[in-house]
Amino acid sequence: MALFSAFRPVFSSHSLPVYDFLAPSLFQIHRAPRSIRHLSTTPQRHTLSNFQNDSPSTAPRTPKTGTEATSNPASTSKPLTQAQRDFLSRALRVNQTGELAAVLIYAAQTPVIVASHPHLRPLMKHMYDQEAGHFVTWNALLSRHRVRPTALYPVWTMAATVLGWGTAVMGREAAMACTEAVETVIGGHYNEQVGGLLEIFKEMEAEGVEVGEDLRVLVESVRRIRDEELEHLDHALENDAQKAVPHELLTGVIRAGCRGAIWVSERV
């Protein structure tokens, strides 16, 4: 893990804002060489344990009055606006739902795929482990920030299991096409979210409000998870996702379904 973290200083909180969301997978500076790509970069409790230990950010601090500084030294002066809080709670909710679905899709695909293609076992396990790590991350952030989970939790559970199992029964190519379609939508969605978060940062800095540590950790988590999702997309393409029959129809339907699910779970 120490070796791997050496590749990631680009994403430390000191370099914000980096507009890397404009070109996610073209520049691969942050990625480790292929030999260690199968390491999961999602430690189970990473985000929570680091909240307190992170070195103080070097962002320009707004001057505080004496009473303010003594009563609340480490915090920032202004509450988040209603719009910002709505955006954040929607974002966290939809991310948790997405990772729930991803975990279930891989869990349902794995036994079927591995039974007929045993060489895919490490890959499936790797992708499943990463998704499980993401799910833990979002669960922790949801309960930390008191965001309610989606009300349609059982519906998404059922839908994701059926989708994973169904595509796995259709064969390896279809399963990989499912991964391709899902990760395309999810990668794009995380990208938009990074954009939205940086927009919020800009608003706050324009008002002279210091961006809290929580938000910096959040944008880092979104970036890291997005890159791992796009890595799954590469794996799917390497494993003949494009050879699925009928590829266009299958990926089109799944992509539309994912977009609909994102739209709904942001709201409900």
Binding site: T76, K78, P79, L88, S89, R144, H145, R146, G212, L215
Partner: peptide, 9 residues
């Protein structure tokens, strides 16, 4: 019951 921040008031 929306986002509850630990850094901002």
């Amino acid at each position: 019951r929306t986002y509850h921040s630990h850094n901002h008031p």
